[in-house]
Design a protein around this nucleic acid. Sequence first.
DNA 1: GAGTGGTCTAGACCACAGA
DNA 2: CTGTGGTCTAGACCACTCG
Lengths: 255, 255
Amino acid sequence: MPNVDRHGFREIATKIREEIIGGRYPTGSVLPPEPELAQRYGASRSLVNRAMQVLAAEGLVRPRQGRGTMVTWLPPMLHSPARYDRSTREAKGARGAFDAEIRARGLEPQHEITTEHAEPPPNVADILGLPAGEANCLVRHRRLLASDIPVRINSSWFPLSIAGGTVLEENGPVIVGGVKSALADLGYPQVSAREEIVPSRMPTDAEANALEISPERTVVEITHVGMTAEGQAVEVTISVAPAHYLTAQYEFPLT
Amino acid sequence: MPNVDRHGFREIATKIREEIIGGRYPTGSVLPPEPELAQRYGASRSLVNRAMQVLAAEGLVRPRQGRGTMVTWLPPMLHSPARYDRSTREAKGARGAFDAEIRARGLEPQHEITTEHAEPPPNVADILGLPAGEANCLVRHRRLLASDIPVRINSSWFPLSIAGGTVLEENGPVIVGGVKSALADLGYPQVSAREEIVPSRMPTDAEANALEISPERTVVEITHVGMTAEGQAVEVTISVAPAHYLTAQYEFPLT
DNA sequence: GAGTGGTCTAGACCACAGA
DNA sequence: CTGTGGTCTAGACCACTCG
C-alpha cells in the first residue's frame, strides 16, 4: 500500500473548501477533474466524488455532467426590512438594494422578469382573501443572478382586481421605486408587513432547476405579506434562495 | 439479474421518507438494518447507505454505528417575537412557550441548564460593549430536548456586572417569567430587540455533538439582542437548532 | 462475538457536453 | 469521438454498541 497518508472524504472536502475560500479556485472557475484530484489526494475517484457532493450540498460548487465542477461560492446577502424603507430605496437608487449588494461584491447583477395571470396557491389565495381555484392573480416572477449565478427567485402575487393592466404587468425592467411605490400610486399604500422564514427545506424540481443547484442543496423560503392600513393584504412575495446565500435581520419592540 | 425494477438511491430515500412521514416508522423508532433494506429494495448496501445519508442530511433520521438508524423527524417549531410578550408568557405559564409547543406535539419537553462565568466571543463582547479578552460575562447554556431528541441549544450572555450573583446564575429549573423579567427586576427592563438569522450553516463539532446530528446536517442560528430604553444591550442569546426544526415569523411597520 | 453503520476500493456503465 | 461527472456493485475492513 503506497499511500503514506490516508484521506477521508471529509478531509478531502475540507482541503478543497479551504482552497476555494482562500481564493485558490475563484468563484466561476472550474475545479480539476475528479480523476486528477483522486490521484493528487491518493484516493479513489469514488471518494473524491463523495467529497464533491459534500461541497455541493454546502453550495460551494456545482458539479455538472460533461462540463466539470464549477465554483459557485458567494458570501451571504443581508435581508432586512430596512430594504423597504423609502429612504433606503432612494439612497440606493432605482435599481434597488439587490443591485447595490451584488455590485459591492464586485459582481454583475442581472434580472429576469416575467408576468402572467395565474391561479394562486391555496395559502396565497387565503392570505389575499381571494376565492380558490380561479386565475384571479397577477404574478410577477423575478430571477436574480450575480454574474450568471442564480441567487434568488421571487414570485409576487397581486389581486388581479388591483394590479391588472397596470405598470405591475410590464415585463420590462425593474419597476422604478419598487412594487410598493407602484401599489401606493394605485391607491393601496402598505403600512405593515409580515414575513415568515423557512430556513431550510428541500427544493422542488422547478426551484432546483431555476436556481441551478444540486438536488441535495437546501433552500431558504421567505414569505412576505404587505398590508394596508385597513389590514388588507395586497401583496404576497415568496422568495426562494439557496440557503447559504442569505441572512436576515429584524428589529421589533418588546411589550 | 432477478431485479425487475431498478432503484436509484434518491428513489430509495424518497420511499423511506414517505414511510417516515406517513407514520410507518414513528419518531424514535429504529429502521430495519441496511442489509435488510438493501434486499427489500433490490440494491446494494452501498446504495441504501447513500440513501440514509440523504435522509440524515434532511434531518429525518440519525444513523449510529452499532445502534441502528433512529427516526428523528419532528415538525418545525415557530419562532416569533410574540414569545417575548408578557401576555404570551403568562398565558403559557411559567414553563414557557417551548414547553407548550413540544407538548402540543405529544412529546415531553426537557431542559438542561448550566451557567458559568466566561469570556464572550468577540462579536458578543462588541454588542454588549464590554472589553474583549476578559471573563466578564455570565453565560447561561440551555439544551432543549423533545422526548430525548435535542432540538435546540441556547447560550445567553449577560454582563457579569449586571447578572453576577443574581437569580440568573442559578443552574436549577427554568427561571419563572423568563430571563427578561428577571433582568427587568434587576433594573434593566428591555424595550426592543434585534434578531439576526443565519438560515443554514455547517455545525461546529461541539454543536453537532450537543444536537446529536450528523456532521452533514446544517443548523440555523438566531442571534437575539435585547436592549434597554437607553439603547444598551443587556442580553445576547444565540440559539442553534437543526435547520429544519424551526420556522420564524416577524411583523414590522413600513415607513 | 455478533450485528450495526462508516468508510473505502476497483471497476464498470451511463448521460451529457463539447471539439 | 473523448472526457466529464452520476451512479452502481461486490466485497472488504473498521469502529462502535450491546448482550
